[in-house]
């Protein structure tokens, strides 16, 4: 089953909409609560990344009886060094974003920790695509 969500850069008040919705869906499907927790945390972090860094993005969620596959595709500045971005504490977030309690440099490491598979590709000045897979 497929679900699609639009995410707007800078709109922090709506950040977390997709992850909250996904949580409700997975609850209905009786997925193990521990797995739901991991999926939701991973998606939430990735969602906030788009809001904090990109101009806009699309989240596509594909659920079957084996896995939840999430693809987040954004138009934005892209990531010059993915290796650096994956380090805990590394952040390019603006002071404005940090003031709101985001941008601690834990986003990508947290996604990696909670996803069973995580792939990330990025082009500077074009955008970033993050793929998150969790087995259910």
């Amino acid at each position: 089953m497929k679900f699609e969500y639009k995410v707007q850069g800078g709109n922090f008040s709506k950040a977390g909409y997709a992850s909250s919705d996904l949580k409700k869906i997975l609850k209905q499907l009786n997925v193990n609560p521990a797995i739901i927790k991991r999926v939701v945390v991973a998606l939430y972090e990735a969602e906030v990344n788009i809001v904090a860094h990109a101009y806009n993005g699309t989240i596509t969620i594909d659920i079957d009886d084996k896995q939840v596959r999430i693809v987040l595709e954004d138009q934005g500045p892209g990531i010059p060094s993915i290796e650096q971005a994956m380090q805990k504490g590394f952040s390019t977030a603006s002071p404005h974003v940090r003031e709101m309690g985001f941008g601690a440099g834990m986003g990508l490491p947290n996604i990696k920790k909670n996803a069973d598979v995580m792939n990330i590709t990025s082009k500077v000045n074009v955008g970033t695509t993050v793929e998150i897979i969790n087995y259910i």
Binding site: M1, K27, Q28, L29, N30, V31, I63, D64, D65, I136
Partner: peptide, 12 residues
């Protein structure tokens, strides 16, 4: 009180 079904495939 389960969601739609206790079996994930059926629930889907």
């Amino acid at each position: 009180q389960a969601g739609l079904d206790s079996n994930i495939s059926v629930a889907l």
